[in-house]
Design a protein around this nucleic acid. Structure first.
Lengths: 196, 196
DNA sequence: ACCTGAACACCGTTCAAGT
DNA sequence: ACCTGAACACCGTTCAAGT
């Protein structure tokens, strides 16, 4: 049994979340899954909240880190948005984990830095670059949260049907969405946001 | 002591959240704040999860319900976006409460119905109306989550300063944002989204 | 430096029993 | 119909003590 370290705890947490979801994540259950007494975790991580914060920042590791991209301006911003979405979706409950905590760790900041940089090189008035970069981030986060929430519902088929007479547009709209790839939906709003 | 009912439990929950935040909300603490044994709550509400779901839908009560509005198309959609944001901000942790649960209750659906209706009357190709309405919703949710997270930080001044040499754009950007009213920031992205 | 064991002060949920 | 009291199976966190 290799000795535990902080990275192993984070990986164990991700593994647990993949199977049971964040809501079921417990220091005691996590410790058990790592074959360790639960008190031990507190040697590697300050407390549960700090663990979740670390997971949130972990999610963004490498998102802004693609030196071989040669996209610029709006193209680069779109690329970053896609990479951000992919990162949030790469782990179960990822979007909720990031949204729930106000992270200011290095990976999160590195993403912000790249996004603002891209926005500044775009055609918008330069003083709006920050606003644009953040708007993109809001959109991506909101989108990914809904996307993962919907995913969850598919597994737990509590199909509460929508009243067609009271909400005909929603009813028909959801059918439309079901037949539209998530990528297309994502791109639709993203393009509107980035259009010059 | 008036008898308890479901509405009183919801109101009590909001009152508790206003003071202590959702994370501190506990069935036992809530019961205590209502002057009642904690087992009692389960007579009025199925369980804690259902209570949170109810709070989420409660948040959207009346958002789509403004019969005297005479805005149409994009104007109407912008109006709904503003009303949604206001609703999310009207209670502490509101945005996180809504985002955390996949609600399909009546108020939530009523908002969707109004938003899609507005989008359909706008100049966009009608088959994109659903995409547009949802994009707006994603943006508003993402925005409000960050907005409330930032608010929280102001109260708890754990000002972890940002490394200016590594993240100069973020550092300068946050200063810009601090001097820009939240409403302006919100409108910036919203306009980009709704621009025809 | 890392881990165990045990303790402390909490949780959500259920359910007989009261009124 | 609504509420109490008590129980059950859990939590997160701390900390002496071990190695």
């Amino acid at each position: 049994m290799a000795r535990l370290d902080r990275a192993a705890v984070l990986n164990g947490a991700w593994a647990y979340i993949e199977i049971h979801g964040v809501d079921a994540l417990t220091m005691r259950k996590l410790a058990a899954s790592l074959g360790v007494n639960h008190g031990t975790l507190y040697w590697h991580v300050e407390n549960k909240h700090a663990l979740i914060d670390a997971l949130a920042d972990d999610l963004l590791a490498g998102v802004a880190d693609d030196p071989h991209s040669n996209a610029v301006g709006m193209e680069r911003l779109a690329e970053l948005a896609h990479r951000l979405r992919a990162a949030l979706l790469s782990h179960r409950d990822g979007a909720r984990i990031l949204a729930g905590t106000f992270v200011r760790e290095s990976h999160t900041l590195a993403f912000g830095e790249a996004a603002i940089g891209a926005a500044r090189s775009a055609a918008v008035p330069e003083r709006d670059a920050v606003l644009l970069a953040f708007s993109v981030q809001y959109y991506v986060t909101g989108f990914a949260i809904e996307e993962q929430a919907a995913q969850q519902l598919e597994y737990a088929p509590k199909r509460t049907d929508i009243d067609e007479t009271r909400f005909p547009l929603v009813k028909a709209g959801l059918d439309t969405l079901r037949n539209t790839a998530h990528d297309k939906q994502f791109d639709y709003g993203l393009r509107r946001l980035l259009r010059t």
